[in-house]
Design a protein around this nucleic acid. Structure first.
Lengths: 209, 209
DNA sequence: GTCTATAAATAGATAGAC
DNA sequence: GTCTATCTATTTATAGAC
C-alpha cells in the first residue's frame, strides 16, 4: 500500500481543482460541497478547514483564472508588435488558457449570463481589466491605421464569447448521438479554430477597400 | 377593489412568464419554485397544478423559445433572397427574438455552458436545427460564390454567442458603478449592435481580395 | 381552480475527538 | 491536519380542505 498522506498544501490544491471542475460542470448554485470534497478525496470538514465557505472557494477559482488571463493579456498589449499581430497573439493566448484551465470557459460564460451575480467588485474589476487591455490594442491599431473605426467593445464581444462557447461546447457534443444532425456540429480541431478566429477578427477590423 | 380573478389559462401564462424570468436570472438549479410562484402571484400548489415539476416547466420555457427562433430562422432560410441578405435578416431576427423574450439569451448561454445538461434529446434537437438551417444559408452563399469557404459551424459560433452575451451583459453593467473602468463597457444601442454584427459577419465571409 | 399545512429529502456548515 | 456525527435551514413536492 502506497503512502496516501499528502504533502502540505496538497489537499488544498486538490480541493481547488475539484471545485473548479465542479463549478464548471454545474455552476455555483448547483455545485455541491459534498461532491467537491469527494472529488478531491478529502473530507468535507477538511474543505472547510481550507476555505471559509463555498462562495470563498468559488471566488478563489474565479480570481485564479482571471489573474492568469489578465497577466497574459497585459504582457501582449505591452509588447511592441503591431496591433494585428497582438490581436492574433491574444486570441491564441486565450485559447491556450482555456486549454490549461478547462473550467475557465464554462465558469466565465455563466458569470456573463448571470450578470456577474456572485462576484464582488474587485473580481468584476479583474474581468473588466481584460477588456480594457484588449481595447487598448484595438485603439492602437486604429491609430496606426490598420484597423477600421469599429467599436472596441462590440468587437471584443464578437471574439471572446466565441472562444468561450467553442470550448464549453466541445464537451457536450461528444455524447448524444441520438440527436438528429448533431454530427454536423461535432467538435473541431483547436488549431483550426484558432486560425478561424484570427482570420475572422482581422477581416472584421479590415478597412473597406 | 378590482376583480382579481383570472381568465382560464391566465394563471398558467403568469407562471410561465415568471418562470422564464427566474430561470434567466438564476439558472435552473438556483431558481426557486417559491419565488416563481410569488412572481406569478399564484400559490405554489397552483404552479404544480399546471406543471408536473420544476424541470417540466423549464423544458417548456426552453421549447417555447427554441420553437420561436427555429420558425423565424426557417422562414428566412426558405426565402429566395441572396445568402448575404438572408444572413443579415437572420441576425436581425435573433436580436428581435432576444428583445421579445429577454430570458432567451441567458438561458441559452447557460445551456451551452453546461453542455445542455438538463435538456432532453428532442429539445437539444431543436437547438441543433437552428444551426443546421443557418448552415444551409452559409453553404448557399458559398455555392453562389459570395461567401468564402469558411467552416459554417465556426462561423455560426462567431455570430450567435456574441448576440447572446451582448444581451445577457446589458443587464449587468447598469449597476456596479464602483468598479474601475466599467463605464467603458456600458450598454450599447441595439441598432448599432445589429449593424456591427451584420457588418462583421459579412466581412468574415468575404472572399480575400 | 385555489389554498394551508406539511412531508421528505438534501443542503451548507460546525463541534469536537483524534 | 483529518475525521465522524450532527445541527439547522431550506427545498421540491404533495395531501387534502374548500
Amino acid at each position: 500500500m502506497v503512502n496516501k498522506r499528502r504533502t502540505p498544501g496538497e489537499s488544498q490544491a486538490a480541493v481547488f481543482r475539484a471545485a473548479a471542475q465542479e463549478f464548471a460542470e454545474r455552476g455555483f448554485e448547483a455545485a455541491r460541497v459534498d461532491r467537491i470534497a469527494a472529488r478531491a478525496r478529502v473530507n468535507k470538514a477538511m474543505l472547510y478547514y481550507h476555505y471559509r465557505s463555498k462562495l470563498e472557494l468559488y471566488i478563489e477559482v474565479l480570481r485564479d483564472m482571471l489573474r492568469a488571463v489578465g497577466v497574459r493579456t497585459r504582457a501582449i498589449a505591452d509588447g511592441s508588435a503591431p496591433a494585428d499581430a497582438k490581436l492574433d497573439a491574444w486570441i491564441a493566448a486565450i485559447v491556450e488558457e482555456a486549454a490549461a484551465r478547462p473550467w475557465f470557459p464554462p465558469i466565465m460564460l455563466r458569470e456573463l449570463a448571470s450578470g456577474a451575480a456572485h462576484i464582488d467588485d474587485a473580481t468584476l474589476g479583474m474581468m473588466n481589466a481584460v477588456f480594457l487591455t484588449v481595447r487598448d490594442v484595438i485603439t492602437q491599431g486604429q491609430r496606426e491605421g490598420t484597423f477600421r473605426d469599429a467599436d472596441p467593445l462590440l468587437t471584443y464581444l464578437m471574439i471572446l464569447p466565441s472562444i468561450l462557447i467553442f470550448f464549453a461546447r466541445q464537451r457536450v457534443i461528444v455524447q448524444r448521438k441520438s440527436v438528429h444532425g448533431l454530427a454536423a456540429a461535432a467538435p473541431r480541431d483547436v488549431d483550426e479554430f484558432i486560425r478561424h478566429v484570427q482570420t475572422s477578427a482581422r477581416a472584421m477590423l479590415r478597412r473597406h477597400t
